[in-house]
Simulated scan of single mutants.
Amino acid sequence: MAPTHLMHRLNGIGLPTRAGRGTALMELAGQLPATVLSRLLGLHIGTATAWSQEAGNTRPGYAAEVARRALRKNQ
């Protein structure tokens, strides 16, 4: 099923797709760095950066957290 067809069907039964998409994107933008968000979702880096800033993403420690997880996993 094409994404637009699914969107129209969901909207037709009262499920607003745009709000859900925005909420999901804001949640991801708050948890991931803009470069990861950009590559993961295929967004332009400027768009991903704007979403991250809007979400209040101040996670400079993201890379360090990923490294810690890798260390714990290998132990």
Rank of each mutant, 00 (worst) to 15 (best):
M1Q: 11
A2W: 13
P3V: 01
P3S: 09
P3F: 11
P3I: 06
T4R: 12
H5R: 05
H5L: 15
H5Q: 14
H5M: 09
L6K: 05
H8M: 04
H8P: 00
R9A: 14
R9Q: 09
N11P: 07
G12L: 06
G12H: 14
G12Y: 03
I13C: 09
I13R: 09
I13P: 12
I13Y: 14
G14S: 12
G14T: 01
G14K: 07
G14I: 04
G14Q: 11
L15T: 14
P16R: 05
P16A: 06
T17M: 13
T17E: 04
T17W: 13
R18V: 01
R18N: 08
A19G: 14
G20C: 05
G20A: 05
G20Q: 08
G22H: 04
T23P: 01
A24Q: 12
A24H: 12
A24S: 08
A24V: 01
L25N: 00
L25M: 14
L25D: 02
M26T: 07
M26G: 07
M26E: 11
M26V: 02
E27N: 07
E27I: 12
E27S: 15
L28W: 13
A29I: 02
G30E: 03
L32I: 13
P33G: 09
A34K: 06
A34G: 09
A34N: 01
T35P: 04
T35D: 13
V36M: 03
V36F: 06
L37H: 03
L37P: 01
L37I: 09
L37Q: 07
L37G: 05
L37K: 00
S38Y: 04
S38A: 15
S38M: 03
R39F: 08
R39T: 02
R39Q: 08
L40C: 02
L40W: 01
L40K: 10
L40G: 02
L41D: 03
G42P: 08
G42H: 08
G42A: 11
L43K: 07
L43I: 08
L43D: 01
L43C: 03
L43N: 14
L43P: 00
H44N: 12
H44I: 03
I45V: 10
I45M: 06
I45D: 12
G46E: 15
G46I: 04
G46N: 10
T47E: 14
T47P: 00
T47N: 06
T49P: 00
T49Q: 12
A50C: 06
A50W: 10
W51R: 01
W51S: 04
W51I: 14
S52C: 15
S52R: 09
S52L: 11
Q53I: 15
Q53F: 00
Q53D: 15
E54F: 00
E54S: 12
E54D: 02
A55R: 11
G56K: 01
G56D: 06
N57E: 11
N57A: 15
T58K: 00
R59M: 15
R59K: 10
R59D: 09
P60M: 08
P60W: 02
G61I: 04
G61V: 06
Y62G: 04
A64Y: 02
A64V: 06
A64E: 04
E65T: 13
E65M: 07
V66R: 03
A67P: 00
R69S: 14
A70F: 12
A70T: 05
A70E: 11
L71Y: 12
L71F: 04
R72K: 07
R72S: 11
R72N: 10
R72V: 12
K73A: 10
K73H: 08
N74E: 02
N74P: 00
Q75R: 04
Q75V: 06
